[in-house]
């Protein structure tokens, strides 16, 4: 660890490289976590199938390359297909668990997660797959190499996030979603079809996952059982950012990407995930202390 820190002070350019790469990683995490926060906040459903939906999006990309298309072509296709799938899943499963207690929705989405894994395994087999974008790269200075595909992913994730934020603020549906999140009963009284809102929210999340999956297949690797990696990261990010804090989710996503990369360098790769979880504990403890203070003031 000491020699790794020494290395960083000797060649600060390494640190810059780590942070840039971390931001790229964080962009994808942020996107996935945003979708999770949406479903969690609006419907109070903890979607354990989040990562598996990402992987499903990845396989849509992979299928596109099998048919001879460039993987980026799959992006609009994944968004549309996953939106429809999300709607179907809502009608078939989620609608029945939305008002139940936490464990019912956990169980239902866990089952969904297993189902997606096994279906993908049946169709594509358990081998690791990738989608090659062939976008090339460029060099900054003499050391930092930036993959164009990662840069595009960052921009795309930012654009998608921005579009969603605007949609939530400005559009009628976005307002209905926020109203439902605040108080579903009151929203219903005011004439909002909350069932429709729930269906839309879940489908929107699925299409966000699909878009993230396209990026994952082009940057990393996909396999039917790798969804859990993204589910765990998304849960960590949403928990750390706090529910209902959507801009916070995006910032935390980037933070997690950078922290994981830097910690992996300094403490060794085996402690990268541990570093992230310790950070989460630290954030939660800080919040607890804050909460305690506020309470004392009220008293």
């Amino acid at each position: 660890m000491i020699d790794n820190l020494y290395l960083l002070t000797q060649a600060p350019i390494l640190g810059v490289d780590l942070i840039i790469q971390g931001l790229f990683i964080g962009a994808v995490f942020a996107l996935i976590a945003y979708g999770l926060a949406l479903v969690w906040g609006v419907m109070n459903v903890k979607n354990l199938a989040q990562g598996d939906m990402v992987i499903l999006g990845g396989y849509i990309t992979y299928q596109a390359t099998l048919w001879g298309y460039h993987p980026i072509v799959a992006l609009p296709a994944a968004i549309v297909l996953m939106f429809m799938l999300g709607w179907i899943i809502y009608v078939l499963i989620i609608r029945r668990v939305v008002d139940r207690d936490m464990f019912t929705s956990l169980l239902a989405t866990f089952g969904l997660s297993l189902l997606i894994q096994q279906v993908l395994n049946l169709i594509y087999g358990p081998e690791v797959k990738v989608a090659e974008s062939g976008f090339g790269d460029f060099e900054v200075g003499s050391f930092i190499i930036i993959q164009n595909v990662r840069l595009y992913s960052l921009l795309l994730a930012a654009a998608l996030a921005l579009a969603i934020v605007i949609f939530m603020k400005k559009s009628r549906m976005g307002q209905a979603i926020r109203a439902t999140a605040q108080d579903a009963r009151a929203a219903r009284v005011l004439g909002i079809d909350t069932d429709q809102v729930y269906a839309f929210t879940y489908a929107l999340n699925a299409s966000i996952c699909g878009a993230a999956g396209v990026l994952v297949a082009m940057i990393w690797v996909i396999q039917p059982y790798y969804g859990i990696v993204y589910s765990i990261r998304a849960f960590i990010i949403v928990t750390a950012a706090g529910l209902g804090n959507l801009p916070g989710v995006i910032l935390t996503g980037f933070g997690l990407g950078v922290w994981e990369n830097v910690a992996g360098f300094v403490f060794g790769a085996e402690f990268a995930v541990a570093a992230v979880v310790i950070m989460l504990v630290a954030v939660l403890m800080y919040r607890l202390v804050q909460l305690y203070r506020v309470r004392q003031v009220v008293r």
């Binding site: 690797v221 992996g264 360098f265 995930v273």
Partner: peptide
Amino acid sequence: DKLPRDLSDMTSTLT
């Protein structure tokens, strides 16, 4: 470096 099982990226090791 020992890569965790759920690692998706090797950037820090390769840096």
